[in-house]
Design a protein around this nucleic acid. Structure first.
Lengths: 220, 220
DNA sequence: GAATGTGAAGGTTTTCACAGCA
DNA sequence: TGCTGTGAAAACCTTCACATTC
C-alpha cells in the first residue's frame, strides 16, 4: 500500500500543497500541447522560484533531464503517484445541505480522482432523494454502507452543532480521512487524518490585507 | 482607514490564519460563558503551543493580564479589529452555479462580517432569478452596480474557462480583494489582493497522508 | 548551452525559557 | 503563584550557487 518512491525526509505541508498546484498546471500544459516544461516555466505560472520547484520534486526523486526540463506527462504521472491520486478514491458526503449538494456536482473532485459515491443525511425529507444520480442514505446506516461500498474518505458538511456526533459515527465506521467544512474544532483519534476547510478564513485574510496594506500579495 | 494597532513587523500569513481561528474559538468561549482564557487553553483547543498563541498576539500588542490570561470579549474585539472584521464588508458573488448559490446561504460568512449583497451571472436564464432575496444581476452591469452598492470584495465561482474575463471585469470595476474558486491561476494587477480557494487541495493532502503515513496529523 | 539536482547559506517561523507583573 | 510578553535558540523552509548531465 505504501509508495515505492524514495521519501527520505519528512515532507512539509507546503510542499504537498505545491505538488497539488503543479499537478493541475501540468494537466493544463498537457492540454496546451507542451511536451516538456522547465522548473523556470512551472515556477512562473505558480509565482514561485525555480529552485523551489526543483527542491520540492527532489524530495521524491529525479524526474527531469538536465538541459531539457521535465516531460509533462511523465511528471504529472509521478506527482499523481506521490499524491496518491492516480488511484480513484471513494468519497462520501455527510450532510446534504447547500454546500454538501454543491460538492456533489463539483467537477474538480472527479478530475483529481475523488469520486463521491455516497450521500448521507439525518433529515427524513432528504433521505431517498436523488442528487446527480445518488440516492441520499440514512445516516443511521452509515457504518454498514461505508463498509459495503469501501468508502475511504468522508466530507462533513453538517451544521457545527452536530458535526462531532457525525464524525464520531464516521470514525466508528473505520474511515481514516475526513474533510470537515463545519466551523468547529473536531476531535478524532490519533490515527485519523482530519483537515478543515474554512472558507471564511480566506475572506478574513483579504480583510486583514486591505486594512493593513499587507504585502505578500497574490500568494497561495 | 488604517488600523491604530502597533503593527511593527511584517506579519506572516500563518499568524493571520491563526488569528481567524482564535476569533472563532473566542466566540465559542464567549457563548460557553467564559470570561477569561489562558494561552494554554486557547492553544489546547487549536492544537497549538501556548507560546505560539502568545507570540501571535504579541505582534499586535499586549492584550493579556499576567497571572490571569485574556479577557474573552476584549480579546475577541481586538482580534476582530486586527482582522478588520468588526466592520461589515459588502461582498458580491460572480457565477451563480452550484457553489455560488451555496455560498449565498453560507451563514459563517455573515457571522464573520461578510455580507453577500449582490449576485452576478452571464446566463440569461439566471439573471433576474431570486436567491435568498437577492436578484441575480447581469454581469454586463457589474462595473456600474459594484460602484453603486460599494462592493469591496468579490467571490468568483465561474468555470475556469471564463474566470479570467470575469476577474478582468471585476478589477476594472475597482475591486481590490478577490476570492477565486475557479481552478486556475488568475492574473491581477499588483494592487489587487487575490486568494484562491482550492477545495481539492485538502482532499489531495488527505490522499497523500494516507498513502505515506504522513505525520503532522490533524493540523490546520 | 541549457537546465537539473543539491549541499550550504540565508531567512523565517516556532519553541524555549525566563524575567516581570497581577 | 500563575500566566503573560519576549529575547534567544532551535527548527524549519526557501533561495543561492554551482557541479553535473544531456
Amino acid at each position: 500500500m505504501s509508495s515505492e518512491l524514495p521519501i527520505k525526509k519528512r515532507i512539509s505541508e507546503s510542499t504537498i500543497h505545491r505538488l497539488s498546484m503543479y499537478f493541475r498546471t501540468l494537466s493544463l500544459l498537457q492540454k496546451e500541447g507542451y511536451e516538456t516544461v522547465s522548473s523556470k516555466e512551472l515556477a512562473r505560472r505558480e509565482k514561485l522560484t525555480p529552485a523551489q520547484v526543483r527542491k520540492d520534486l527532489s524530495f521524491f526523486g529525479s524526474f527531469g533531464t538536465r538541459g531539457l526540463g521535465y516531460d509533462v506527462v511523465e511528471l504529472k504521472g509521478k506527482i499523481g503517484e506521490i499524491l496518491g491520486i492516480n488511484k480513484q478514491w471513494k468519497v462520501a458526503v455527510v450532510g446534504i445541505g447547500n454546500i454538501g449538494s454543491a460538492l456533489v456536482s463539483y467537477k474538480e473532485f472527479t478530475r483529481q480522482g475523488f469520486h463521491i459515491v455516497k450521500l448521507f443525511d439525518n433529515d427524513q425529507r432528504k433521505i431517498g432523494s436523488n442528487h446527480k444520480g445518488i440516492i441520499v442514505s440514512d445516516i443511521n446506516n452509515l457504518e454498514k454502507e461505508i463498509a459495503e461500498d469501501g468508502i475511504e474518505m468522508v466530507i462533513i458538511t453538517v451544521p457545527a452543532t452536530v458535526a462531532q456526533y457525525m464524525v464520531d459515527d464516521v470514525v466508528r465506521a473505520g474511515v481514516k480521512a475526513i474533510l470537515n467544512f463545519a466551523p468547529i474544532n473536531l476531535k478524532v483519534p490519533q490515527d485519523v487524518y482530519l483537515r478543515n476547510e474554512n472558507m471564511s478564513m480566506e475572506l478574513e485574510y483579504l480583510s486583514f490585507a486591505i486594512m493593513n496594506n499587507h504585502t505578500p500579495k497574490n500568494k497561495r
